[in-house]
Simulated assay, not measured.
Amino acid sequence: MDRKDGMGLRAWWLMGVAGGLMACGDPNVVAEVGKREVSKGDVSAFIAARSARDVPTATQALDALVDRSLLADEARRAGLDKDPGVRARLRTAEREVLAQALLDQRLAAATDEAKLREGYTASREKWVRREVHVRQIMVRVPPGADEATRSRLLSRINGLYARLVGGEPFETVAREGSEDTVSAPRGGDLGPVLEGQVDEGFFTEAARLGKGERSRPFATSFGLHVLEAVEPVRTVEPTFEQVRGRLEAETRRDAQEALMKDLRERIPVTRHPDRLETGASEGQGPRS
């Protein structure tokens, strides 16, 4: 081998090494399938999309992504990426991913901790609620109960109420006769309840009672009740932590409505509903 040939072989070897380094040098690339790459971000996205009951390991996710990439590569070679139905599905996937990414970005900015606290401070009066603290005796009424069943259950709650009128302690009657499995063991004590947390009719009856007063039997959509007030009704201002969930939900809804209003005003939209039937076949996918 002369010097010229040796230099040529060395050049080819250097080019091969350089190519290998270029292909494998990106630390974010975890696999190459044909001419396409699988990145760490692909693996993370794949894992995030799985259900909480079936979370794969990173290695399992990579194996699955390689398999799907092989299938996708073969689909391109078969020309399926040119099929109108497949193209429509690809556009749908892209549209949904981009739309959700924008919503996540904008709504996260609108609902960070500092802005939520600002919103709470600016609307403190809005969160003021009445609060009651009562004991209850409840008899459940099944949905769709007939008149005979309702009459029997009404007799039952009236019998429990008669025991109270006869002088038995409310706690005793509640433990023995109430069908609310949560409050009955506590003598019927529901603890403090804010307006809006329970049935409106229930709260109205509870709010009428002074400390130690009892209601007569009354009905709600949940059943038949008798109440006794542990404390008189009072007005309370919930803490930020107590209303944070509702405040965040309302803020997200308002931010999304504002975003959509802005987009509709800035981006022209032309609809062609008359073309829906003639164009519906485009999204049917490949036919055999």
Rank of each mutant, 00 (worst) to 15 (best):
residue 207 A to E: 13
residue 41 G to P: 02
residue 193 V to D: 06
residue 31 A to Q: 13
residue 142 P to Q: 11
residue 15 M to P: 04
residue 94 E to I: 15
residue 255 A to K: 06
residue 92 T to W: 02
residue 270 T to D: 13
residue 189 D to Y: 07
residue 125 E to L: 10
residue 12 W to Q: 10
residue 13 W to V: 09
residue 268 P to L: 05
residue 72 A to E: 06
residue 179 E to G: 01
residue 287 R to D: 07
residue 69 S to D: 01
residue 197 Q to C: 09
residue 192 P to V: 01
residue 163 R to D: 04
residue 62 L to Y: 05
residue 199 D to C: 06
residue 203 F to W: 07
residue 18 A to P: 14
residue 144 G to N: 00
residue 172 T to I: 00
residue 145 A to H: 12
residue 113 E to T: 04
residue 83 D to A: 13
residue 137 I to P: 11
residue 6 G to T: 12
residue 133 H to K: 05
residue 228 E to R: 00
residue 75 A to D: 02
residue 56 P to K: 14
residue 207 A to S: 03
residue 35 K to A: 07
residue 124 R to H: 03
residue 30 V to D: 03
residue 243 V to H: 00
residue 17 V to G: 02
residue 79 G to H: 01
residue 158 N to M: 07
residue 183 S to E: 10
residue 85 G to Q: 08
residue 155 S to M: 15
residue 281 S to H: 15
residue 195 E to D: 04
residue 156 R to G: 09
residue 140 R to T: 07
residue 25 G to L: 12
residue 202 F to E: 08
residue 126 K to S: 11
residue 202 F to Q: 15
residue 68 R to F: 10
residue 283 G to I: 00
residue 137 I to E: 05
residue 174 A to M: 05
residue 98 L to K: 07
residue 36 R to M: 11
residue 229 A to N: 05
residue 138 M to Q: 13
residue 125 E to T: 14
residue 41 G to T: 10
residue 104 D to E: 06
residue 279 G to M: 14
residue 143 P to A: 06
residue 253 R to N: 12
residue 9 L to E: 04
residue 282 E to T: 15
residue 87 R to A: 11
residue 274 D to F: 14
residue 253 R to Q: 00
residue 230 V to N: 06
residue 277 E to G: 03
residue 280 A to D: 08
residue 178 S to G: 04
residue 216 R to W: 04
residue 178 S to A: 02
residue 246 R to E: 05
residue 55 V to F: 06
residue 57 T to C: 07
residue 91 R to L: 04
residue 140 R to Y: 02
residue 116 L to Y: 02
residue 237 E to Q: 01
residue 171 E to P: 04
residue 82 K to M: 05
residue 280 A to P: 15
residue 72 A to P: 01
residue 73 D to T: 01
residue 166 G to D: 06
residue 278 T to N: 01
residue 97 V to D: 08
residue 134 V to W: 03
residue 203 F to M: 07
residue 211 K to E: 11
residue 159 G to H: 08
residue 39 S to K: 09
residue 8 G to A: 01
residue 198 V to P: 05
residue 145 A to N: 03
residue 9 L to N: 12
residue 95 R to D: 12
residue 29 V to P: 09
residue 67 D to C: 07
residue 234 R to L: 15
residue 149 T to K: 03
residue 207 A to I: 03
residue 227 L to M: 02
residue 174 A to I: 09
residue 132 V to F: 09
